[in-house]
Design a protein around this nucleic acid. Structure first.
Lengths: 128, 128
DNA sequence: CCCTGTGTATTATTTATCTTAGTACACTTA
DNA sequence: TAAGTGTACTAAGATAAATAATACACAGGG
């Protein structure tokens, strides 16, 4: 699946932002690595520079990239963002489990079924 | 929190649909119980009858309510919907855990932290 | 039958968001 | 100097959401 999915109802800038957010959190984009230029990425995705610019503004506002005038956008480092996202994930899962409880379901049962058949962590990220 | 939250970026019809979806899944609205009339609910929520109508159309399309011409909308029963929602929840949790794994996190750790401090199922729904 | 309440359909208008387009300016580096 | 970079601005088009007003068909109570 590419960066932009036409069947996805979310706005393009959000799909771009989400794509790179995941790349950064996964360590595929390393700290201080240069992001594609606004114009280049717009060309590559057959979209508008303004749309890419908005995606980058979103990433910057959320602390995933930083800007150097005249040079480009670069990836922020690393562990703090992973930790923040981890806590956000826990809140998201907890919200689902809460809803399950309100329906009379057993949250441990939900968690157990969600865990079954998952690949294990590869430890590449080295989160200690 | 009321049905409509102005700080919520989701459309009003979706908030209404979601609200009643949860009431039905929680058993607060019982099978064959009458839904508020389109005009009454619109009045109560200070919104447009068309918006409520759209929410009801959404609920009907998803199988949560049924319509009797000239009489009103009524709640569908019960266990099949709960089971469907349960499986959907498991898929949602699994997607989050997958993302965590791609970041090098341990999914069992995420699940355990999400479970900690949750209220237990009250068994009111009686899901066997 | 008549009246009221119900869902449903239609058209139009307004509003907000997203996207594209084009232009311009300041900064950095080769 | 020239090319590449981010950034700002205005304008226009497209789409979705919400409101407004009207109309029609059906069910039930009197």
């Amino acid at each position: 699946m590419g960066i932009i999915d036409m069947r996805d109802s979310r706005p393009i800038f959000e799909q771009i932002s989400d794509w790179y957010r995941k790349l950064i959190l996964q360590g595929v984009m390393e700290p201080d690595e240069k992001m594609p230029s606004v114009r280049n990425l717009a060309m590559e995705l057959s979209t508008n520079p303004n749309t890419v610019q908005r995606a980058y503004a979103d990433l910057e506002q959320k602390g995933f990239i930083y800007t150097v005038r005249g040079r480009g956008n670069f990836v922020c480092g690393g562990q703090v963002l992973v930790q923040q996202r981890k806590e956000e994930m826990i809140r998201e899962i907890r919200a689902i489990l809460d809803e399950g409880v309100s329906m009379g379901l057993d949250p441990r049962d939900l968690a157990r079924e969600a865990l079954s058949g998952l690949p294990q962590a590869d430890g590449k990220g080295g989160q200690s």
